[in-house]
Design a protein around this nucleic acid. Structure first.
Lengths: 200, 200
DNA sequence: GGACATGGAAACCGATCGGTTTCCACCGGG
DNA sequence: CCCGGTGGAAACCGATCGGTTTCCATGTCC
């Protein structure tokens, strides 16, 4: 029987190591990273890489996809929390500012991927677009719960703030101390979102 | 005497043709365009290209720099106009939305350059950063004239909206019908910028 | 008309890249 | 103890890329 593969000493399975390294390297260096560098960083041979994936692009897409749950879990407020919808929305922008404080922050990886690839039909672009859509969906449902006049509009506005702030911080044009949260709060106010009631 | 070079039949001087084509191609295809493609598009030999510039990167930087005056002239309100400062600020976001309506709009070229290069010290990144700074400067001085409570803060906020809206439109995640202008207006209101008086 | 500078076409060069293949070391199951 | 599957190291291949060079077809100035 082909053993189902347990955690090898050098880390997880080659696939995991590869995708982790890919996520990091693509983010840091861009789509242009040579496959050799990728494999070296992952401690994986090109042989293994190409029998796990069809192309470098496929690795890129898979790495983006794999990273999403973790990023989402960190970015979005935990669902079991007793926070009100307004605070839940602002929570995301606090996380964004926290991430942007990191000196080597390079902006949202999904934005970067789509900007670098330019081709929307690219496998990785599709994955990235889906990830971004999920964030807007979160914004919209929370905006609805929060009593926004036009939840769809507010969600789009928040997405613009999120991507704008993330991008500007990523290119070093801005350090965001409170900027993203302030802007989000201003837009929430203008959309008629009231303060959350006291935590129950 | 070395003739000072007049408009050749095939277009302007080789340098001009090269920079025009470079601006267009780098924007459309990204930093990865082969020099051959660049030269072919410009109708210029690599020989000429490399005796005009030191490297492809230098061409990139020069193309970005050369494009700026035209873009600025189109993006910013004409100075001789009798518009009030609030309208002058909103004018920029109307131009942005107009540009984003173009189906092949790919976002702000300076943002794209910095995102793709990632290296802030890159020649082209420096040019791009300077261009972006000039826009924020415009925002700040107009915000001051407009009576904003904190012109510096408002300018940073407007920059976030500008880059966020431009980027999202560029990656096809948003079509911006009125979104950018609305957001800018909301932020102007929150910053205490009054409506312009009647045109004198 | 002849000397000279300009500039395109294209061959060329070394390096690199995406992807394939070969070889071998190591593993668990019989 | 052998056997088949896994997977790393590394050679390898064709294509491409950034950059250089050679060659020649134009000019323009004297």
């Amino acid at each position: 029987m082909t053993t189902k593969k347990a955690a090898a000493p050098g880390g997880a399975t080659p696939r995991d190591r590869l995708l982790d390294a890919a996520g990091e390297l693509f983010y840091r260096e861009g789509v242009g990273v040579p496959t050799d560098a990728l494999c070296k960083a992952a401690g994986v041979s090109k042989r293994s890489m190409y029998q796990l994936f069809d192309s470098k692009d496929a690795v890129f897409a898979a790495a983006l996809e794999r990273g999403e749950p973790a990023l989402t879990a960190w970015l979005l407020p935990p669902p079991e929390e007793e926070r009100g919808p307004r605070e839940r929305l602002l929570y995301v922008f606090e996380r964004l500012e926290e991430a942007a404080r990191e000196p080597d922050y390079l902006g949202c990886p999904y934005v970067a991927a789509q900007v670098e690839l330019k081709e929307p039909s690219h496998v990785a672009s599709v994955v990235a677009a889906r990830a971004k859509r999920r964030l807007v969906d979160f914004f919209r449902t929370e905006a609805g719960r929060a009593g926004a006049a036009d939840p769809g509009l507010l969600a789009r506005q928040l997405a613009v703030v999120y991507d704008g702030a993330g991008t500007r911080a990523g290119i070093g044009a801005e350090d965001l101390r409170g900027l993203a949260v302030t802007m989000a709060a201003t837009l929430l106010d203008a959309a008629g979102v009231p303060d959350d009631g006291p935590p129950r």
